[in-house]
Design a protein around this nucleic acid. Sequence first.
RNA 1: GGAGAGGUGGCCGAGUUGGCUUAAGGCAGCCGCCUGCUAAGCGGUUGUGGGGGUAAAACUUCACCGGGGGUUCGAAUCCCCCCCUCUCCGCCA
Length: 422
Amino acid sequence: MLDKRLIRDNPEAIRRAIETRGYTMDVDQIIALDKELLENLQAADKLKHERNVKSEEIGNRKRAGKSTKELHEHLKKISLEIKTLEAKDKNLSEKLNELLLLLPNIPHESVPVGNGPEDNVVVRIHGEIPEQFFDIAPHWEIGERIGVLDLEAGRKISGRGFIVFRKEGALLCRALVNLMLDTHREKGYEEVLIPYMVNRDAMIGTGQLPKLSDDMYLCEVDDLFLIPTSEVPITNIHRDTFIALEDLPLKHTAFSPCFRREAGSYGADTRGLLRVHQFDKVEIVKIVHPDTSYEELESLVLDASAILDALELPYRVVELCTADLGFAAAKCYDLEVYAPGIKKWLEVSSCSNFEAFQARRANIKLKKTPGEKHRFAHTLNGSGLALPRIIAAIFEFHQTPTGRVKIPKRLVPYMHGVEYLG
RNA sequence: GGAGAGGUGGCCGAGUUGGCUUAAGGCAGCCGCCUGCUAAGCGGUUGUGGGGGUAAAACUUCACCGGGGGUUCGAAUCCCCCCCUCUCCGCCA
């Protein structure tokens, strides 16, 4: 959510920001509503003031034993007027709030302006992509051949987009999660274990609702959503709180499964592990002081990419352009790992700075010292990392000419000594 | 699912015969004094959000005691509905 005052004072900047994101939203309607609401509010405030003053007078007169009759009648009329104005206020506020919740964040000034993924900027590439001497099978082929991946079972049990890992494949998932959590913990992230179902307030807090409700699984009888990312529960730990400056930055890491309906993406990447409805992910979240959030974003990217280094996978850091930016993000870097079998860069992490966008929705404030105004914290998060695509990359990039998969050194202890799959 | 208790400011916690209670008291925070030893004492100060006002303040005003309705000139206090938390019982892991 954006600051209402920013919209009021800077409508042109908001219009431009929305446009560069490729959104169409009626900013004028918001501004008009806001203005009407304000005028209504002022009228109501005036009457309420009168009511307060005169009601007090009634109290005084009563104690003094004087008549209050004509005041009663006058105030009754005023109260009625107030009721009318309040009804109008409620109506307008609801409308305005609905619109405000649908307004995306404003891109940071450093974000490249663009029209789509093609305008994203590759910031840097780590590692080398060697010349291929042999045909590398796509990950689903090798996974099923060596018996660690059972896509057919997943389809049978739940449907397309659900995966069964078997044997060392299942072990690999567990190993990856442990490696990731341990690595982040060493860097000062507090490990947390969070609910996988959350309520509406939590979803609104981090920006998934109301806009993206179709992308999520809803358990209707309880009105609970399956989390699309652990960002939601983690960030919402701090919803409606004041954070002391000396406690900043707050850093959390958590493992969780993530559930995504991904409506509207039919047809794209339907094979293998690339686009699934349920996947495991380790997330890192930071809640920081507004003055340092962009430095914190850079270090968050490093923390996430440390995992890719550990897994000996080549990757690139991509800065998203305005049109490709997520709804709540002000700036975002994607980490993309190279999968030579399908010859694609796979997004395995999105590292975003949301500035105060989520904090304003979730009411996460910093404790102030007397005299100064409250400020909202800045929130950041990134995957560190998402498993299926990482596994796809491992299967393909660490594939040997004999069709086996070499386990990266750092992972071997977590694999109970298993050095090769297959 | 059944029975009971309760939801008040950053935290704890008073206040329910309706009217100087935005809300005592404590803690914490801040400022100052005192004190010479990681502490204590004393005095002052500090809720949140919005509007108006100002260069910024000062100032002024409205709202807020889980949420939503209602009664009333006036509600933290009375009435109705909903939500949540806790305790006990049941059921399940």
